[in-house]
Structures are given as C-alpha cells and as structure tokens.
C-alpha cells in the first residue's frame, strides 16, 4: 500500500481512537454523578473536578446528558445508565477503529507466496 492509501485509514483510526479514549474518560465522570447534576448524592467528584480545574470541560457533556436523557432526572440510577451509555459509545468507536485496520485482512484475492 502506498503512503497515500494509508493516510485515510490512519486518520480514521486516530479519530476513532480519540473518540474511544474520550468516551472512556466520560465513564467515571458519569458514575460520580457529574454529568447528571440533578442527582442528589456526594459532591466529592465535583470538588475533585474543581480542584483539577476541569469542570469547564464537562459542560458540553452535561448539556448532552441533560438534553438526551431528560427521563433520567429523577432516577437514582442515572449515573450508571449514563456510564453504560458512554461505555457503549467507547465500544463502538473502538470497534470502528479496529475494523478500519482489520478490514485489510479480509481477502477477495489470494496471491500465492513464492517458495
């Protein structure tokens, strides 16, 4: 494969790997209840995020959760469901990332190796 043919798969793999990592990091935040602020509970996770100075980074995720999971507002399990949801996204990005590389093994033509 030429360098140009390789370019697109590499970019795709990087995008999906980044997506997978991002979603994986979202998972603990979801479990701390940070992404579902309406849930009563300890706010040690929130303090932790404030200490690290990254609460701002979570704003888009909080907005996403609030707009997509309104029915979880009064559910004690909201953090776990949201954790599961981000795990699903991470798995899908990982799957696509792996498939982009792995699909090269699928063969429609077999050329015999010279002995």
């Amino acid at each position: 494969m030429s360098a140009r043919d390789r370019f697109l798969p590499i970019v795709l793999v990087l995008i999906f790997a980044a997506g997978c990592l991002g979603m994986t990091f979202m998972m603990p935040w979801a479990e701390f209840g940070l992404l579902t602020p309406s849930i009563p509970g300890s706010d040690w996770g929130k303090q932790f995020a404030d200490t690290l100075g990254i609460s701002g980074l979570l704003q888009p995720a909080i907005a996403f959760v609030n707009s997509n999971f309104p029915y979880l507002k009064d559910d004690v399990n909201a953090p776990y469901y949201v954790y599961g949801f981000f795990m699903a996204l991470a798995l899908i990005s990982a799957a696509i990332g792996i498939a982009v590389i792995g699909r090269e093994d699928a063969e429609e033509k077999t050329v015999l190796p010279l002995k």
Binding site: F69, Y71, L72, D75, N77, Y81, V82, G84, F85, M87, A88, L89, L91, I92, A94, A95, I98, A99, G102
Partner: peptide, 21 residues
C-alpha cells in the same frame, strides 16, 4: 464472532439499556 462484532453487540445493548430504562 470477531471482537469487533462482539463490541458492537454489547454496545447496542448498553445503549438500549440507557435509552429505555
């Protein structure tokens, strides 16, 4: 199935769990 398909099978189920508690 290969891991890629397994990941997607689990992911779909997890997403449905969160979307339809």
């Amino acid at each position: 199935p290969p891991p890629v398909i397994n990941y997607i099978l689990v992911a779909i189920t997890l997403a449905v769990v969160a979307m339809f508690p």
